[in-house]
């Protein structure tokens, strides 16, 4: 009787310790394991509704895709499908986007996102993807490219060139013009040729001046 009782006590203590360790580990908020099986849903309420979802499969269509390809000759609702040949690029692509601080900021952001993998941050090529085996693109700041019209650069982004594919699906028309403006900044060594004063510092000066006067006023 006495030995039985002791055994029972020993195993319950071991069990309790393991049990506590297990839950303390689990509830400490860190992943203790990963799983390939989808999360458990005991009561799935309306979590999974029978509707067409973005990029989901669909049994309704023969090809099994819920996302449909556009019908032939479809044009985007805002903008046009790019359909200009290289010969017409200089004359048909007209850059009507004004050079402003926001446009240049946007151009920089899109350039850093879409172009730097190959063209690098300075536009001279030899980006990180090129180092992995992609063809090295010619420098964007070479005199040849500086002489290109805005329309010609726009054409290269929109239609692609050599091994570079079209970026019309990734960059909207406006974004492409912003990138063109930013390439001019790179070619001109940090400032856009059409922009003499840097508006950002000007604006900053204004706001600091305003804040200064407001502070002075409140002090009085």
């Amino acid at each position: 009787m006495a030995t039985n009782k002791r055994k029972f006590g020993f195993w319950s203590v071991v069990g309790l310790v393991l049990f506590t360790l297990f839950w303390v580990g689990l509830l400490s908020g860190n992943i203790l394991w990963t799983s390939d099986t989808p999360p458990l849903e005991i009561i799935d309420d309306m979590d999974n509704q029978q509707k067409v979802k973005a990029q989901a499969p669909s049994s309704f269509f023969a090809d099994g895709k819920a996302t449909r390809d556009p019908v032939e000759y479809t044009v985007p609702r805002n903008g046009t499908k790019y359909n200009v040949s290289l010969d017409d690029a200089d004359t048909k692509n007209i850059n009507s986007i004004p050079v402003t601080a926001e446009v240049l900021a946007r151009g920089k952001n899109r350039f850093e996102t879409m172009c730097t993998p190959c063209h690098n941050h300075d536009g001279k090529g030899n980006g990180l993807v090129v180092q992995k085996g992609f063809a090295n693109p010619p420098s964007l700041v070479r005199p040849d490219a500086v002489a290109y019209t805005d329309g010609r650069i726009f054409h290269v982004i929109s239609a692609g060139q050599n091994i570079m594919s079209s970026y019309a699906d990734k960059l909207s028309e406006l974004d492409r013009w912003c990138v063109v403006h930013y390439i001019r900044v790179l070619q001109n060594g940090g400032t856009h040729p059409k922009m003499t004063a840097a508006p950002k510092t000007e604006k900053d000066n204004q706001t600091t001046a305003q804040a200064g006067t407001a502070k002075a006023a409140s002090a009085q």
């Binding site: 839950w23 799983s35 390939d36």
Partner: peptide, 21 residues
């Protein structure tokens, strides 16, 4: 045991976190 498992065990942090298909 059952109440602890049902209270904490079905929390999203336990069931969803760590999903790696």
């Amino acid at each position: 045991f059952i109440s602890i498992v049902s209270y904490f065990g079905f929390d999203n942090a336990v069931t969803d976190v760590g999903y790696r298909p």
